[in-house]
Computed example of a mutant assay.
Amino acid sequence: MFLQAIINGAEKPGPTHQSFKCKDSGNFKSNDLLTCRDDAFKSLYKSMGKPGRYTGFDSSFDTNAQMHGVWTYALCPPNIKMEACLECFNNTIPYLIKNCPKQKEGVAWTALPKVTCILRYADYSIHGDFAEWAWTSFSTPPNETSANVAELEKGLTLLANNLKEKAAGGDNNKKFTSGAIPYGPGAGNAWPLYGYMQCTPGISKDKCIKCLNDANRFIHNCCGKGRKLSAIALSTNCYFWCAHMDFSPKKL
């Protein structure tokens, strides 16, 4: 009943973009484990919604009588309201269940107008697990920045270099930072470029930096060459979100 309420609640508002990947590692062999997965999602939703403890990341585990279990986690920006993360999570749970109905491991990403979230599950402990087997990217419609490709590519690299050490230097509760840089033709004519970077808190600083470097390369390949106004690259463990507008919570 609880999970069905989440699914019904996810019908609107609909997500701006969604993507998923199911890992090719086989299927659950019993309905008990599928129930464990659903129960783990329920526990994760309840835990993330507890007042006063929202950090943008939470995890959950559920097991059956044979001591086989399913682990889950969800990641959102920590500087948004808890309700915005739960809205994103609401949209992602039924989407992931629908598209990875029996697989042992899967991940899904949802982008709403004001927040992006990651939801992952597996039949083994994934807290602290560094896994780059799945990536996706989203961008704005074909609106283009007035910067040329070389200028934008240079700006993206500078922004990533400014943010990644700060994000990776976080603790076991939060690995996140945001910031902005001017880039372009020079003083008085520069464009602002804003960014978020975040990793799952359980991974090490070095692995977080590697993930964010890979996200930066993904952004260059998917969106820099297209001169996109806004783009995000996401994996199972991190994301890099950049835009030509200030999308901090006070501006959303």
Rank of each mutant, 00 (worst) to 15 (best):
E132T: 14
K98V: 06
A190P: 02
L112F: 08
W109Q: 07
F57R: 02
F41H: 06
C238G: 04
A215S: 13
S139T: 15
G26T: 12
W135G: 04
L234P: 03
Y239I: 05
K251C: 05
S204N: 02
E165Q: 14
E153A: 12
A74T: 13
H17I: 01
T157M: 07
H17K: 12
T72E: 06
E165D: 10
I118L: 14
I97N: 13
D123Y: 05
E83Q: 13
F41K: 00
K210H: 04
V115H: 04
L163A: 07
A190L: 09
L86R: 09
N237G: 13
S47E: 10
L86G: 03
I209C: 09
T16E: 12
K174I: 11
K207Q: 15
W241I: 01
G26H: 01
P101M: 08
Y45L: 04
G184F: 04
L3P: 00
C238F: 07
E165N: 03
R37M: 08
Q18G: 01
L159C: 05
G226F: 03
C242W: 13
P249K: 03
I232W: 13
F247I: 10
G9N: 14
Y194Q: 05
P94A: 09
W241M: 12
V115P: 00
E151L: 08
P94C: 11
